[in-house]
Write a protein that binds this DNA or RNA. Structure first.
Length: 918
RNA sequence: GGGCAGUUAGCUCAGCGGUAGAGCGGCUCGUUUACACCGAGUUGGUCGGGGGUUCGAUUCCCUCACUGCCCACCA
């Protein structure tokens, strides 16, 4: 036990304890220790991007995980919190490429070539990869760092390949030329989930096309994308639209590219139910190569798909001489100009529409026809059912509906990416000809399903090993979507497909904590992978955090500059303050409006805790003495009862993942109850000469503090650990019971009936203590009314209906900061005009010398009487209503009657007091 | 177009069928045995509008309004 310094210094304390926890291997999970009496608790971290830095979102997310993990340890469970990072394909590649460009090293990654570029990315990863992991340590995260994983670790990569090969062999993975979301900046395909819709102010271009068979007759088309006219291969109308039925089957003259001869620009006018006749003119241009819906129409009518764009979003030769080489947006205005010049432009009108944007590059995506790999999701039914049935629970529950809806409308997942940073697709194409030749070159041991003829006729081999005859085979150049590796996270990190001790002990995991924004990207897919490969759910509970916003409710973003650096907050206020502040303001399922004020509150709370413990230490005496039940005061009993209640509240809140409620309950208990009332009241006993009473008070304090520190530890681990040792609570405890670290101390349980019986804790004690506090409040009110400073010693007179003990009088006197609290006898009559207030024990008087304005005093009491009369009117109105007396439950009626008589009694006393003034 | 949240004190949020709560802020007083990152006191709300159910509604139901988010191939 060492003396607590005057101020809490988070910096050194945090470093000291984190190092100590680690060197004592307190975060280390030991599968061999898992047994019936020591159940496993496990949680896998949502792996942050390897090159990322800590954000407030991470703080929220990981503090929750840390609270869960630390409490589980204290509850005697064997805990695995498995950390790691994600290679984050596009994000990382983009960052590295951009940096190299900025340095002037390259203009495009092609300048380096695949291998050299990947070397650079690995270099970057080595340099920046550890940052976020270090930052998590600063936050206090109790991860098992010995098990840290990266999604491109060799073993992990092998899992990814293995799963690909397996799904390929099951026929769930296929390659085909499909309409995909193309990002012209990253020049890769994206999944539907990586596209975000944004409402845009655009314009609707109305232009005319001539009907070939009826010269001089024109149809008007409304489009938002005039630049794609050269790619049109039909004009479509609704078959039931009376305006246009005559034209179906005829041809239209496509205006662009205008240099082509007219006959080469003839396109059919077709009927398709997809066309809405209420929109625009009811005539639709069909561009199968550049619009998803048009592509479908094209399929239905066997229309050619004319691709008029390069992968980078510039127009190609098919767009015509005027547009070729131009960027798609420049081409749009050029096309409009061209139509105008041709006399075909009718009008342009402003139009709001939704445009899909690439989430990463923040540019409009281009629907594009290209050769990609797709996955038909496996284990869909089981994955849906497990959530629907409640076997796996979502918190808050409403996300289950969102999940179910998505699962019901699953679209095949485009898993190939035209990037370099990622897991290379384990498919090789045969350079020779013929399936037999291909099989022969691979050797006899290749299973049938590893070899397949694809849609476009190419021969593909899929396997873990590259074909030996490398000259005959060429590997697919694409890599896999990042999420195709993330979805294996819960088991690929535990050594799967080996049945490792870790996997056996800790899988399936207990809780998953993540943001709702990745429910489809990650959560849903992990569930499916879990069922497909381990045959069961990967986690039992999913907790969805809110999203952190700034105090105006805007999303945190780099461009807005509204996202504070958590590390700055830690160095300014301490990690515990940050954790507590964020937790206290993050209710279940609600977005969190972040304000530095919250962290300040956390810091203030830590300081309060520190000082309260210092106060205890300054009192000296032996630590954790035995509590003598016979010496307990009502305050002692009161605080023990409040503690018991708080233990229950905190435990229950945590069981239900209501972290802010738990933090709130602790805050209220410690600050408003323990510090404000109990510590203040205890000063009476501590300053007295009765050493037995003094020691007993200290014993109660120690009991309460030791419990509170344990309750607080998951939230604010550093300061609680420091205080645990500073006060010497660790002494004489076995190492695994809190003897070496608070981390291993048992989680407080309710005190229980035996405890209550032994120490004689009764509800009456609480009432009695509250009554005393009411006397104090009444007295302070009197002080206020007569504008007497709180530091001025005063004399009060209490005229109780029943006797108070000497100790009780002492306590009230102390809390009132009174020179004296005189207890008057029943026949005592206050001097005329003495200010007074009502208390549960009877009237409290504040005798003042000569300065009392009787009229003012009467008025003061009159105000109170008026208030009570108002309440009385309300209660009486109820009680006099037939319907209430007959309709309401007897108990409620009784409560109202009781209330009425209470008000009446108070009123009577106040009236008597007022009369005494006249 | 469909779905999900939210609307309670100046601000951020609890409460969710029987006398409206907390923190922050504001105001007043204050170095009284830890703590001014503090203490004491105080101010402040017809609980978004309108219906309904009920003896009774901030709390349950319906409806409207606004705000935010998610999903959706009206060019």
């Amino acid at each position: 036990m060492s003396e607590l310094s005057k101020n809490y210094e988070p910096q050194s304390v945090e470093e000291k304890w984190y190092a100590q926890w680690q060197s004592a291997e307190r975060f280390h999970a030991r599968p061999e220790r898992v047994c019936e009496k020591r159940p496993a608790y496990s949680i896998v971290i949502p792996p942050p991007n390897v090159t990322g830095v800590l954000t407030l979102g991470h703080v929220l997310n990981n503090t929750i995980q840390d609270i869960l993990a630390r409490r589980a340890r204290m509850q005697g469970r064997e805990v695995l919190w498995l950390p790691g990072t994600d290679h984050a394909g596009i994000a990382t590649q983009t960052v590295v490429e951009r940096t190299l460009k900025k340095q002037g090293a390259i203009r495009h990654r092609d300048d380096l070539g695949r291998e050299k570029f990947l070397e650079k990315v690995w270099e970057w990863k080595e340099k920046h990869g550890g940052i976020i992991i270090q930052q998590l340590r600063k936050l206090g995260a109790s991860c098992d760092w010995s098990r840290e994983r990266f999604t491109m670790d060799p073993e992990y990569s092998e899992c990814v390949q293995r799963v690909f090969v397996d799904l390929f062999s099951k026929g769930l993975i296929y390659r085909g030329k499909r309409m995909v979301n193309w990002c012209p900046v990253s020049r890769t395909a994206l999944s539907d989930e990586e596209v975000v819709m944004k409402e845009q102010n655009g314009s609707l271009t109305h232009f005319k096309v001539e009907v070939a068979e009826r010269p001089g007759t024109f149809l008007t088309i409304a489009t938002t994308r005039p630049e794609t006219i050269p790619g049109d291969s039909a004009i479509a109308v609704n078959p039931n639209d009376p305006r246009y039925t005559d034209f179906i089957g005829l041809h239209a003259v496509r205006p662009l590219p205008s240099e082509l001869p007219r006959e080469q620009r003839l396109i059919p006018i077709i009927a398709d139910a997809h066309v809405e006749f209420g929109f625009g003119t009811g005539v639709l241009k069909v561009t199968p190569a550049h619009d998803k819906a048009d592509f479908e129409i094209g399929l239905r009518h066997q229309l050619p798909a004319i691709d008029i764009m390069h992968p980078d979003g510039t127009m190609n030769a098919l767009a015509g001489v005027d547009l070729a080489g131009k960027d798609r947006f420049e081409a749009r205005s050029l096309a409009i100009e061209k139509l105008r010049a041709l006399g075909l432009l009718e009008k342009e009108e402003p139009h709001r529409n939704n445009v899909g944007f690439s989430e990463r590059a923040d540019v409009p995506i281009e629907p594009r026809l290209s050769q990609q790999w797709f996955l038909k999701y496996p284990s869909v039914q089981a994955s849906r059912e497990v959530v629907r049935s409640g076997q796996m629970r979502f918190h808050p529950e409403r996300w289950a509906k969102v999940y179910d809806h998505w699962m019901e409308n699953l679209q095949d997942w485009c898993i190939s990416r035209q990037l370099w940073w990622g897991h290379r697709i384990p498919v090789w194409y045969f350079r020779g000809t013929g399936l037999d030749a291909a099989r022969a070159s691979l050797g006899a041991s290749i299973p049938d399903h590893a070899l397949r003829v694809l849609e476009d006729g190419s021969i593909a081999y899929c396997g873990l090993q590259a074909p030996a005859e490398t000259s005959l085979w060429e590997q697919d150049s694409d890599v896999l979507d990042t999420w195709f590796s993330s979805w294996l996270w819960p088991f690929a990190t535990m050594g799967w497909p080996e049945s490792t001790p870790t996997l056996k002990a800790f899988y399936p995991t207990t809780d998953l904590v993540t943001g709702p924004d990745i429910i489809f990207f990650w959560v849903a897919r992990m569930i499916m992978a879990g069922f497909e490969y381990l045959g069961e759910l990967p986690f039992k509970n999913v907790y969805f955090t809110g999203i952190i916003r700034d105090k105006q409710g805007r999303k945190m973003s780099k461009s807005l500059g509204n996202s504070p650096d958590p590390l700055d907050l830690i160095s300014k206020f301490g990690a515990d303050a940050l954790r507590f502040g964020v937790m206290r303001s993050a209710p279940l399922g609600q977005d969190v409006l972040f304000d530095e004020k919250n962290v300040e509150l956390g810091r203030n709370f830590c300081t309060k805790l520190w000082n309260a413990c210092r106060f205890r230490q300054m009192q000296g005496g032996s630590v954790e003495g035995e509590i003598q039940s016979t010496l307990l005061s009502t305050e002692d009993k009161w605080i023990l009862l409040r503690l018991d209640k708080t233990i229950e509240e905190v435990s229950k809140s945590l069981d239900e993942y209501r972290f802010s409620d738990a933090a709130q309950a602790l805050y209220r208990f410690f600050w408003s109850e323990y510090c404000d009332w109990y510590v203040e009241a205890s000063k009476a006993a501590l300053s007295g000469t009765d050493t037995a009473r003094r020691d007993n008070t200290l014993a109660v304090m120690d009991f309460v503090l030791a419990h509170t520190l344990r309750l607080f530890h998951p939230f604010i681990p550093f300061i609680t650990e420091e205080l645990w040792h500073g006060l010497g609570f660790h002494e004489d405890l076995p190492p695994d019971q809190g003897g070496d670290t608070l981390m291993s101390a048992p989680w407080p349980r309710n005190l229980g009936p035996d405890f209550h019986a032994h120490y004689g804790l009764l509800p009456e004690d609480e009432t009695r203590a509250n009554a005393k506090f009411d006397v104090v409040l009444a007295g302070r009110g009197l002080r206020r009314d007569f504008q007497l400073p709180s530091n001025k010693k005063l004399s009060f007179v209490l005229k109780p209906q029943s006797p108070l003990s000497e100790e009780e009088v002492q306590v009230i006197q102390l809390l009132l900061n009174a020179e004296q609290l005189q207890v008057a006898t029943a026949d005592w009559i206050a001097p005329k005009g003495t200010p007074s207030a009502l208390t549960p024990f009877g009237p409290l008087f504040l005798p003042l010398e000569g300065v009392v304005d009787m009229a003012a005093e009467r008025e003061r009491i009159g105000k109170e009487i008026a208030k009570i009369e108002q309440e009385l009117v309300k209660v009486r109105a109820k009680l006099s209503s037939e319907t209430f007396v007959q309709g309401a439950p007897a108990q409620v009626v009784a409560e109202h009657r009781q209330r009425e008589s209470d008000w009446l009694q108070k009123l009577g006393e106040l009236q008597r007091l007022r009369e005494a003034l006249s």
